[in-house]
Design a protein around this nucleic acid. Structure first.
Lengths: 217, 217
DNA sequence: GTCTATACGAGGATAGAC
DNA sequence: GTCTATCCTCGTATAGAC
């Protein structure tokens, strides 16, 4: 066994574990900072301070700021897409769409930072994310559009454009993360409540279902 | 022959006009750069280069980068809100909402930069815009919600939440500017066409009207 | 593996010539 | 009103002690 002498820790932890814990912690903090201030607005110093570590330590784990940012993006892509997959052509669109809208808004509530990072990234041309959009997201998008087409073929919903329906659901649900600062100002409260999100779910579900000719019951 | 007044412009123009022309030109270019790269990502050098002027000239007209950015924001707020005002309680919601959606998407198409600047600003906490949101936009928002309530009272539409309906219309129409990079990737085209915007108008109008119990005819 | 000190470059802002 | 040269701060990244 090598390097046994090197460990000063009383607890026996593999170096790989320490590394993973620390880099997970950094990723978590970086996600928050990037979401709040954007890629260029975020400084390594700010991330370091938030993580309560010296600057150099951040760069020990992630060699450059760009590498760290891409790591954050990559980690979030799965979270961001995970619910699209749940819709299948065998389900009735009433249930599938209702669940999707609910889950997507719940995600906006629980992980607003993932959503904001993606939104900012796309807004500015998806410089770092373009390739993943063209592959991962595009595949998922096509599969989901295919499900919508299946429902239309079964006469379970009206023949609306699957692509634009998807855009509408994405944007209106994401708004509950991306524009929540604005929404809470309009609603005159310090921040959105559970009831506000619930009202959003209800309204969007209603518009989608009735709009596509699917009865609500 | 030495052109005796070569240093001066041959056309007699007031200094005030020169100033206005130049600052207008700078604002136009700055709008583009800020939209593409965000506030912190934009450099005065980049704006100067795009405007084909030296750096110092930009700062002669706008003392600081922040002042320039706020000028851009202020200039766009009107454009961004102008169509909300057009909806009145006397109109039938079928016509008013259809026109609003159409105009809002047209705006996303014609002025994508205004929309992107606002979206980025709000995403990151509306640091520079918060006051204007609390006053100008909030007032307009309240008036429009009041119009919706009037329609509901007249039984012209179902009793849906005016606030969340507004959020839904804002976000889904704005997406045609903010997320157009993503949308065009999903649609597998270099950029969105006239027909794509038209399909968006149609889908959103349909969902809003049918969703609120307003007949389409 | 952790941290201090520092090199180095980018970018905002200013002085002052023309 | 226009522009060159320059200052200076801030932020990334590295070297090297512990």
């Amino acid at each position: 066994m090598k390097n046994e002498k090197a460990t000063k820790k009383p607890v026996r932890r593999k170096l790989a574990d320490i590394r993973k814990d620390n880099s997970d912690q950094i990723l978590l903090v970086a996600e928050k900072v990037f979401a709040e201030r954007g890629y260029r607005g975020s400084t390594i110093a700010a991330i370091a301070e938030e993580a309560d570590l010296p600057k150099a330590n951040i760069l020990y784990y992630f060699k450059t700021k760009e590498i760290l940012y891409k790591a954050v993006l990559g980690r979030q892509l799965g979270i961001w897409m995970q619910h699209m997959d749940a819709m299948t052509v065998d389900q009735h669109p009433r249930d599938a769409l209702r669940d999707y809208v609910r889950n997507k808004i719940k995600q906006s509530k629980d992980h607003p930072n993932s959503s904001r990072i993606f939104a900012a990234e796309i807004l500015h041309g998806a410089e770092f994310l373009q390739e993943k959009l063209r592959t991962d997201l595009k595949d998922q998008f096509d599969r989901t559009c295919e499900v919508f087409r299946g429902w239309i073929a079964k006469r379970w919903m009206d023949p609306v454009s699957p692509e634009h329906l998807m855009f509408m659901i994405w944007s209106s649900t994401q708004a509950y993360a991306d524009y929540s600062f604005q929404s809470s100002i309009m609603l005159e409260k310090p921040e959105m409540t559970e009831e506000d999100y619930e009202a959003g779910v209800e309204l969007i579900t209603r518009l989608v279902l009735k709009g596509c000719g699917i009865s609500l019951l």
